[in-house]
Structures are given as C-alpha cells and as structure tokens.
Write a protein that binds this DNA or RNA. Structure first.
Lengths: 205, 205
DNA sequence: AAAGTTTATGAGCGATCACTCAATTAAAAA
DNA sequence: TTTTTAATTGAGTGATCGCTCATAAACTTT
C-alpha cells in the first residue's frame, strides 16, 4: 500500500475553505494556499488537481456545513416558524455563525467569478438552490404545523428568506455596528413571524 | 498649450467603470483596460496614475450616477413613500437600472477587496453611507409628508431599505427568473408601503 | 521655421501567477 | 533485505501581472 499521506485531507480542505472564503478565488494565490495548508505545490496538485477543483471542494464543504447547521438549528427550535425567525436573529448574536463574520461564501463566489470563471459560478448557483430548498423545507414544516396559511408559497418564502440572509450577512461583512445589525435582524425576523397564521388548524375549504 | 489629449477623459472613465463593474478589481487586468479604453499603458498611467486610483475614480462616477438617478426618481414620484416602494419595483422591471443587470458595484467592491485592498474597501464604505443617506432623506421626506409616523427612525429604515436593494440586485446578478424577481421586489415594496401611517396628520402628543 | 511643451507610444522591467516534473523519500509487500 | 508503489519535494516552466521610461509625435508660441 506504499507511503501514506502526511496531511489530513479533511483538515487541509477546511483550511483551504477558510482561506478562499476570506480572500476570494482570484485574490487567493497558490502561495497563500501553500503557506496556509503547509503543503508544497506538488502535494496540493497531487491531492486536489488544481486551484479550481480545490475551490469547488471547499465550496462543497462550506455548503454541507451550512445546511447541517441550519437543520440542527431547526430541529431544536420551539416551532418551525420560530426557528426560522430565530435563525435570522442568530446572525446578530454571536458575531456570526461559526465565528466567521463574513458574507456567505456562495454570495462572495458568485460576485467574484460570474464573469471570469463560469463553471465555478454555475456550481455556486446549484449550491444556493440546495440551501434555498432547505429553507423551503423549513417553511413547509411550518405550514404542516399550522403556523402558515395553507396558501403560503414555500418556494417564494424561501427566496425571500434567503434574500434576508444574504443582506444580513453582507452587513456582518461590513462590520456594521452590532446594534444596527441586531435591529435589522429583528426587523427581518418579525417579518417572518408576521406570517404566522391566525387560524392555525383550518383544513382546506 | 502643447499637444492636447486624444481621448475623452469622461468617456474613458465610464468605460473603465463598466469593465471594473463587470469583472471586479482583481480580475480586471491592465490589458483588459488597455483594450477597453483603447489606450496604451503609458497613457492610462499618465491620465489616472494607477489601477487603484482608476478604480476609485470609477467608483465615484458610479456612486454619483446612482444617487442622481435615485433622486431624479424620487422627484417625479407621486409621493415619497410611493417613490421608495416604486424604486424597489423598478429593479424588477427594466431588467435593471441603466441596463446593467448586476450587483451594486459597491457591494461587489466590498466583497472583492475588503481583505486585500483595504483603502478601496474603506472608500466603498463611505460611498455606501452616502447612498444610505440619500435613502434616509427619502424617508425623511415621507415623514414630512405625513406618510410615516413621527416616531419613525429614518436612519434605521434607510439601512433596511439598502439591505433590500442589495438583496434585489444580487438576485438580478444571479439572473433569477424575471417572475421570481418581480415577486421578491413586490414583497419588499409592500413592506415599505406597509409603513404608511394610518393617521397621516397627527402632530406630536 | 525653430523652440518649447505636453501627450502618446510600446518594448520591456521585475514580480508573481498557476502549475509541472524529475528526483527523492518513506512506507508496505515480497 | 530487496522490490514495489506512491507521496513529497522545490526549483523551475512560460505566461501574465502592474507598471516605467526613453523616444517619438503633435500641438502652441516665438
């Protein structure tokens, strides 16, 4: 079976993700990665093929974690709709989810590479859709729990929710005052809670 | 007075802005600019000092136009609050303001350069604040017209409005279906109109 | 025309880019 | 131990990066 790898692939990938997330695709050089991963160029290419592929893998890791975190949050929420609203408030609390006060990596990717690396952009759009689907599932749960009107359009609400998340995370990126972010998050959270159906248990006509 | 310049400075600057806006700061090379402006490297540096300075000038041009366009829109609106709501709907209509279906250049800048070109990021934040102030002025006009409660916090509303614009323009960037963008814009516009005070002419207690 | 002044030119600067590959090293298998 | 197999290395690839500067060109003034 020959010589085993010296690095931990998962660990290297996670480091790469953080570097890419912080600096962006174009601004991150192989030198940055060599230093950050503590790997020589040859090893990086042996392990991850090339910069673009490494970036795609980093994106995948990012999305997987995001979805997992969101679902974990929803599972421990008092109710689906409350969970969604709280998810927005959460951005204002800890300084950010996972300790990284930044734009969503997918947003950053799409802004960075849409006109220069279309394949990466296409993949990022797919990932955004995955996350939006997770949000839609959350709204569907709220509907099933009678918190939303039967007529509520979950896909539509999910897009709006994602827009709110995007905007909030962009404010985090700007390092806007904590107070102002909290106020914005509170506004957006209340918009979600305002969707709560007044008649929680009416079946269709 | 010696040899006159061959190029039109304003025109060159506008072209540079469009190139930077499309590709971003890092991804735009001097070659791109040489081609786009039809100027040789020496001339570009003679006219605009360096890439960073040219970018800052392009940003300034962008912001000036954005503010002007917003104010022109507000001046011809039926009422301030209606104008604000219509401004959001406007993004869904023409495919974008000025024919450029993209993220706001300031958003793009901040995502692109915050961790790699701090001076540009700092300037972009100042510009964002300028625009937010223009939005706040719009809300102040609405308040003066009795469309908003006396207690309304214009600065706070302006930040929320700007967040809505950011999110909407990001959707434009994604080339989301026209229908979905229109639905999102309509939602956001209605949130603005929902602020309309039911008692338009009550002075303070 | 000649002198003076400013702009335009583009080959080329050193630095850095993403990336390669022949040589070396380290482990498992024989 | 020897052989086999794969991982690691890092100097070096050509391309491109932002940028410079000596020279040529175009205009006004004398």
């Amino acid at each position: 079976m020959s010589r085993p790898t010296q690095y931990d692939r998962e660990e290297a990938l996670q480091k790469a993700m953080l570097i890419f997330w912080k600096k962006g695709y174009h601004a991150t050089s192989l030198k940055d990665l060599e230093k950050g991963l503590n790997m020589k160029p040859g090893s990086i290419y042996c392990a991850f093929s090339n910069k673009e592929n490494l970036y795609l893998l980093a994106l995948e890791l990012y999305v997987g974690r995001s979805v997992t975190r969101f679902q974990a949050h929803m599972d421990q929420a008092a109710s689906p709709l409350t969970g969604l609203a709280e998810y927005l408030r959460g951005f204002a609390r800890n300084g950010a989810n996972g300790g990284a006060p930044q734009v969503c990596m997918l947003t950053k990717t799409l802004v960075d590479v849409t006109s220069t690396a279309p394949e990466i952009a296409a993949q990022a759009k797919i990932h955004l859709k995955q996350i939006r689907q997770a949000f839609a599932d959350g709204f569907a749960r709220a509907k099933a729990a009678g918190e939303l009107s039967e007529k509520a359009d979950c896909a539509h609400l999910a897009r709006r929710f994602q827009a709110a998340v995007t905007a909030l995370r962009f404010e985090l990126h700007l390092e806007t005052d904590q107070t102002d972010i909290a106020a914005l998050a509170e506004d957006l959270a209340q918009e979600i809670e305002a969707l709560r159906s007044e008649r929680p248990d009416i079946a269709h006509p």
